[in-house]
């Protein structure tokens, strides 16, 4: 399985939840805490993320960076 992860800039997230709905792995949820703007923010809640970037594509605040585990290159 492809493994990935996300970094969500919690200080600029407005908690709109669009990324949560867009995540096919159900890996995102709203935080219990609130950020300095007063919003709950999206956060990663499990290790099922595949780095598909769907969350980042629909994020209206450009708050998400997506990472994917590089394939291990076979020795030639």
């Amino acid at each position: 399985m492809i493994r990935g992860t996300v970094f969500i800039a919690s200080d600029i997230c407005k908690g709109c939840e669009l990324c949560i709905a867009a995540c096919p792995q159900h890996s995102l949820s709203l935080s219990r805490q609130i950020n300095p703007k007063g919003y709950k923010y999206a956060e990663l809640i499990n290790d099922e993320c595949t780095g598909c970037i769907n969350c980042a594509l629909v994020c209206p605040d450009a708050a998400i960076t997506v990472y994917r585990q590089a394939k291990v290159k076979k020795a030639v």
Binding site: T5, D47, V66, A70
Partner: peptide, 11 residues
């Protein structure tokens, strides 16, 4: 959540 290694930025 376990920290992954060998990560590449994809977005």
């Amino acid at each position: 959540i376990p920290v992954l290694e060998n990560l590449e930025v994809v977005y």
